[in-house]
Amino acid sequence: MKRHLLSAADLSRDDAELVLSTAAELRELADRPIKKLPALRGRTVVNLFFEDSTRTRISFEAAAKRLSADVINFAAKGSSLSKGESLKDTALTLEAMGADAVVVRHGASGAPHRLANSGWVRSSVVNAGDGTHEHPTQALLDAFTMWRHLGESKPGGLEGRKVAIVGDVLHSRVARSNALLLQTLGADVTLVAPPTLLPVGVETWPVEVSYDLDAVIPKADAVMMLRVQAERMNGGFFPTAREYSRRYGLDGRRMATLQDHTIVMHPGPMVRGMEITADVADSDRSVIVEQVTNGVAVRMAVLYLLLGGSTPAVGGEE
């Protein structure tokens, strides 16, 4: 039975387009006086966050509440987790509380997979970012944003579109999920990063790789900048921040070489002056704020499709 969303690779093209078209309908809700739908009334969604997150947790919380689900937030700090409780015991607690879905963020790659496949819980598991592995709902909201701007919100709208993902691919779960999902949707992805910030085995990914930002971005339809995740680095990936910024940062001069319709994206949080300059982040091409709005609609679509019916409409095999 399909009931989890652990990886962007779990989604077939039909699944992914169903999420996008559902999100398109749900996005209209934001313009209505009553931003609430009854679809998940009486269901319980637990946000289980072992790592700090503001944006993703709030986005999932808003999504679940707009669908009338009950939301329980469970953060690592100040809970039993900081007292040394294992993932298993936490999971058994959630199961005892009757959670219908667990939205989990964990610093260890594969933790959501363990939670979903261990038999500890019967609820649906949604991966909200695990280590440096995957962040499928971020990929869905990025794809949704591109689909609205570049694909006329139609099925197959991203076919043949060129997307450049630039920066710290090595530590980025967003890059991996995006590469997998965009490949499913028919877009061509190019990763741009210094060799030290590309993961081992990147040649097996369904992407092209370049070290030269200036050569790639004039052809791109969307440019996605990634944050340099200093907290996951212990030095030696590039000589200086200034040199990184000069070679792999998006500034006004580089932005001038983009095609007229090209959009600039960033999954957040961004470091202005590092991977992106303030004038680019605040320009008309930037859809960074819209990505946040779209995130709520996409997460509503995922929760609805996983929990709304008797059996989920999308997601991976158990």
Partner: peptide, 20 residues
Amino acid sequence: TMYRDDLRMKPARALLPTSI
């Protein structure tokens, strides 16, 4: 779709357009 009383008895269904 989201207001139907049989929502939970069938697999989750695709939404249809609402335009006010």
